[in-house]
Design a protein around this nucleic acid. Structure first.
Length: 492
RNA sequence: CGGGCGGUAGCGCAGCCCGGUAGCGCACACGUCUGGGGGGCGUGGGGUCGCAAGUUCGAAUCUUGUUCGCCCGACCA
């Protein structure tokens, strides 16, 4: 099978598309815009999901599951939210098919099976969830309500790309209800921190925490917080969002509670989510022209052992040693595979595991057995070394930590080197065209200017960084006074 | 959703203009020599040419429709 990858420098988009498919993470399907997540890609998602789930539970959340379908009347209850998603909704209008009387063997929609009320396939679940919460919340004693769900959602996108933007995707969505505004805001920020910790420490992708401008805000939110990451082509990618919803949904769905003084008030809400899009971020942040580079902490396989031998007797000797090495690694909780399939040469296997981003490869042959050593190759730097079998498991364990740190530091260095300040419109455009990356610049704070900058430069305000330095300056477009810089980039 | 391009064996492609019943490389199976960076030689299997109509004695090839993908644009809370 030809596995030659397009080089990043030749065509970054094509490199990404090929990598997802050749790395066996996902495939296109017979359904427009929908992907099949293959076992290797799903194993990666499971590792991400398991860690996030653990972190959600550690912060007091529980999981539940709400329906895929949302009755149209509920969907439209919160007007801004409904409006925001209206253009990309899939709608169920009928509940039955029948045999086509004019064409036996074919099915048609039974016109008599039209639904009284259309069902929207959830693009997000605020509506159905808040309709449900209404029945669960009466008193301050019922609060806070801290619920998460793992689910699929559908957004009818015009132009799709595997993982980055698909019509259906997997995600988690947290939906919480609180007695006070302060508590809800605190929750919003807390979950943003959970996301940034997860993305940086497990996925090794550095992120910038910030707040979205009103233009970029989630429909129905008072404030949208986000984490933004920078890809190797200099484009930004929103890696997660956390929304302070105010009382908008409580009012739309009439969710009130009695406080300690028996006074009725609407509850305060948050919602937050990350999706399979994170896998796209992971790929574009780390991988190279040889294939995927996966951070050890979430890689489906952390170590692969490739045997090199001649004849059956040779293989038996190598097998025995490999089994011993594996049990040592497994005892430390390391995910390891012994690739002793006989239908590929060692060289082919090396390339294959590099393509799939396995962090560490151990090559084990007769020469190594004689010297009581193995050859270790790390995926991130492609360095090879010969190490003693003595204390091997511990050495590998430390190496995995080192790789995790190195991948993060490399991405951080790239991000920092590609974050620049622009102090004039000319400089702004020049930096965007020549270097791309994040551009920190003054903006007069108006939606009109933001829109105009977007029209003329194709760059958007990714966020106003949290704890942003306050400094007087002039808007790069209008020259009007500004009190702080905001972060611009061309984005996915 | 508009414009352009593409879909022929698991993968990558040729054949199409000029209609006559499908080919190459890799992969796969078997044998053999091999094995420390995508092996060599030999033999062999596999495709209703994306799908559906139409033109024709005959369609991968011409026409129309449709579907999936890629690129550009619009859209993207």
């Amino acid at each position: 099978m030809s596995k030659e990858l397009t080089k990043r420098a030749d065509d970054y988009s094509q490199w990404y598309n090929e990598l997802v498919v050749k790395g066996e993470l996902a495939d296109h399907s017979a359904v427009r815009g929908c992907m099949v997540i293959k076992p290797y890609g799903y194993a990666l998602w499971e590792n991400m999901r398991d860690q996030l789930d653990k972190m959600f539970k550690e912060t007091g959340h529980v999981n539940a599951y709400f329906p895929l379908f949302v009755p149209k009347s509920l969907f439209e209850a919160e007007e801004k939210n409904a409006e925001g998603f209206a253009k990309e909704c899939a709608i169920v209008t009928h509940y039955r098919l029948k045999t086509d009387p004019d064409n036996k063997g074919k099915l048609i929609v039974d016109p008599e099976a039209k639904l009284e009320e259309e069902l929207i396939i959830r693009p997000t679940s605020e509506a159905i969830i808040w309709n449900t919460y209404k029945g669960w919340i009466q008193s301050y004693r019922d609060l806070p309500l801290l619920i998460n769900q793992w689910a699929n959602v559908v957004r009818w996108e015009m132009r799709t790309r595997l993982f980055l933007r698909t019509a259906e995707f997997l995600w988690q969505e947290g939906h919480t209800a609180h007695a006070t505004k302060e508590e809800a805001v605190e929750e919003t920020v807390k979950m943003l921190d959970v996301y940034s910790t997860f993305v940086e420490e497990w996925m090794a992708v550095p992120v910038i925490k910030g707040v979205k401008t009103p233009n970029e805000r989630f429909a129905g939110a008072e404030d949208t917080y986000c984490i933004e990451a920078l890809m190797q082509d200099g484009k930004a990618l929103q890696a997660g969002t956390s929304h302070f919803l105010g009382q908008n949904f409580a009012k739309a769905f009439d969710v009130k509670f009695s406080d300690k003084n028996n006074k009725l008030d609407y509850v305060w809400a948050t919602s937050w989510g990350v999706s399979t899009r994170l896998i796209g971020a992971l790929i574009m942040a780390h991988s190279d022209d040889e294939g995927l580079i996966l951070p050890p902490r979430i890689a489906p396989l952390q170590v692969v052992i490739v045997p090199i031998y001649k004849g059956e007797e040779g293989k038996a000797l190598v097998d025995a040693k490999a089994t011993e090495i594996m049990s040592g690694l497994k005892a430390l909780g390391i995910r390891v595979k012994y690739d002793d399939s006989d239908n590929a040469r060692p060289g082919w296997k090396f390339a294959e595991h590099e393509l799939k981003g396995v962090p560490v490869r151990i090559a084990l042959g007769m020469r190594d057995l004689e010297n009581n050593v193995v050859e270790i190759a790390r995926r991130d730097t492609k360095e090879k070394s010969t190490v003693s079998l003595e204390g091997l498991a511990g050495h590998i364990s430390e190496l995995l930590d080192e790789i995790q740190a190195n991948i993060f530091n490399r991405a951080l260095k790239f991000r920092d080197e590609n974050t620049r300040e622009a102090n004039s419109w000319e400089e702004f455009i020049r930096l965007l065209d020549e270097k791309s990356g994040f551009i920190s610049a003054h903006w007069d704070g108006t939606p009109e200017t933001e829109e105009k900058i977007k029209q003329e430069s194709k760059a958007t305000i990714r966020c106003i960084p949290l704890n942003n330095k306050q400094e007087d300056g002039k808007c790069i477009l209008t020259g009007k006074p500004s009190s702080q810089r905001v972060l611009f980039a061309r984005a996915y």
